[in-house]
Every structure is written in structure tokens, then in C-alpha cells.
Design a protein around this nucleic acid. Structure first.
Length: 268
DNA sequence: AACCAGGTCTCGA
DNA sequence: TCGAGACCTGGT
């Protein structure tokens, strides 16, 4: 599989995507409506399931020159250390709709709960798959189900989630087309959707719409930027600093920082 | 048992 | 444009 170099544990476990689970040494997930199992072999991977190689290459952004990117974002000793610590950590090219809908649910909740909410929504609205799993639901499958969504434990995200699905279902926004506009325009359009503010917009921009210059700032990145660079302030200020400092691959830098700090906090 | 979680929304200055 | 509060709910 020509997706290397890649490290599945960091790439699928860093928090950028929510539905992959590791069973033994196999990462299981759903890709393009197909249940897939992935194994690590050195710096490469193998797949079981009816999934095309081209689909995997696209999903794992094999078109990114990881060596170049890592070199570009290693602007200082701290970043160089993080880059060195996690070889094979790649960004993923997620489906824009699934990415956006997932991050609408991911507001102000921890990752275990986010995963539960998403699985609950998939079970309630998504297509059943042969292996017993459920696909992530399409907008039209959610749009009419405000009542059903209330039993998914989404809290105050419920209304936003369904309204967003309706908006996409009515073609009031074309998420995919935002790949073809600049970062600023992309974020502005995304923020016109219910449940999408500064942070979710940046996540969708970088994880789903190829805007690798986006720099999502959540509570952890906020702390990290303060510790690493003494940067604090409004979302706009921290975001702008990250984008200016790291450049066109700021989104990658953000993920290395996020994962590095996630791991150090886990040890405390 | 509090505190916090990959924030958003609303409102007032 | 910015800061302050409210806000569902469940992990830790």
C-alpha cells in the first residue's frame, strides 16, 4: 500500500478523527461506506476489506510530502522535537460532511463522550453495514429526525446538529466547493452554519477541505501556544500567530502540538 | 464531588 | 471587536 510513511497509532489516535478503534493490532473503521481493517507494517500499512488502494491513498493524504512538511514546521527546537517524536503522523483527508457534522458534536465535550455521541447518531440514522457497524448518516437521513436525535445524548448540540443537516440537505451550502476557495472565504462560509464557530470552521477547513494553512485553536492548543511561545489572547490572535509562524502547513503543526500535549497530559 | 471537556451563541460595552 | 455567562452531559 503506497501510503507511507505513516504511523496508524498517531494518525488515527491523535484526535483528528473519531470513529476508528484499535482491536488488538488492527485499526477498524468505515471508509466510503465500507468496513475496513488496517495493519501496520513498518512504515507502511495493509488493508483488509473491499477498499481500493486509491481510496486509502487519498484518505491518508499520500499526496502530501511528509518529509518536506515536517521540515517546514520544525521552526524551533520544541517543534523539531515533536516532529522527531512522531514520525508518520499524517493529517487525514476526511469527508467534508462527516467531518463538519462530527465537529459540531465535538464542542465542549471530551473525546470519549464525542465518540459515544457520534456512534449513537450513526446507530440511529445511518445505514446498517454487513459487518454489524453503521455508516455515518447522510444529511437527508438526519434532516427529518429532530425527535429521534434527542435520544442520542447530544445535549444542546442536538438542535444545531439537525439544523446543520437540514441546511446541507437543502443545498444552502455546498461543503465540497469550499475546497476551491481560499482559507478566509472557506472559514467565513462555514461559520454561517449552525454549530460552526471559529474553531470548528478551522477543523473542517484543514481536516476536510485541504486548507492545510488552517490552525484550529482549542483549549489545549491555547495552553500549548502560551507555554511554547508565550502567545495568548483572543481566538483570532492565537490563530493568526500560528498561521503566520508555521506557514502553509500550519494545520500539520497544530496536530503535532495537539498530539504531543495530549500524551504528556495523560502521564500526569 | 467538583471540575472540565478539540465551543457556540447571545448580549452589552 | 471583545469579554462574560449560559449551556447539556458524562468522564475523570
Amino acid at each position: 500500500m503506497r501510503v507511507g510513511p505513516i504511523d496508524l497509532d498517531s494518525t488515527l489516535g491523535c484526535g483528528q478523527v473519531f470513529r476508528w478503534r484499535k482491536e488488538g493490532d488492527v485499526w477498524r473503521g468505515i471508509l466510503d461506506g465500507t468496513e475496513v481493517g488496517l495493519r501496520q507494517h513498518g512504515a507502511s500499512i495493509s488493508a483488509e476489506g473491499a477498499i481500493g488502494e486509491r481510496t486509502l491513498e487519498r484518505y491518508f493524504r499520500s499526496d502530501d510530502d511528509l518529509d518536506l512538511i515536517r521540515e517546514e514546521i520544525a521552526k524551533d527546537g520544541a517543534m523539531a522535537a515533536m516532529v522527531a517524536q512522531f514520525p508518520g503522523l499524517r493529517l487525514i483527508r476526511q469527508d467534508p460532511w462527516e467531518c463538519a457534522a462530527s465537529y459540531v458534536l465535538a464542542t465542549n465535550a471530551n473525546i470519549p463522550r464525542i465518540q459515544k455521541m457520534i456512534e449513537s447518531v450513526c446507530r440511529a440514522f445511518g445505514d446498517a453495514l454487513p459487518g454489524g457497524g453503521y455508516d455515518f448518516p447522510r444529511p437527508d437521513q438526519i434532516a427529518g429526525g429532530k425527535e429521534a436525535a434527542r435520544s442520542c445524548g447530544l445535549g444542546y448540540r442536538c438542535g444545531r446538529f439537525v439544523e446543520f443537516a437540514r441546511m446541507v440537505d437543502r443545498d444552502e451550502i455546498d461543503l465540497g466547493s469550499l475546497r476551491n476557495v481560499e482559507y478566509g472565504e472557506c472559514v467565513k462560509e462555514l461559520k454561517s452554519c449552525p454549530g460552526i464557530g471559529d474553531k470548528v470552521a478551522d477543523c473542517v477547513a484543514v481536516f476536510g477541505l485541504d486548507h492545510l494553512d488552517a490552525f484550529p485553536v482549542d483549549v489545549r492548543i491555547k495552553k500549548a501556544m502560551e507555554e511554547l511561545y508565550g502567545v495568548s489572547g483572543t481566538y483570532r490572535q492565537v490563530n493568526q500567530y500560528g498561521r503566520d509562524y508555521f506557514g502553509r502547513y500550519a494545520g500539520y503543526a497544530q496536530e503535532y502540538i495537539y498530539y504531543a500535549f495530549q500524551r504528556t497530559n495523560r502521564l500526569r
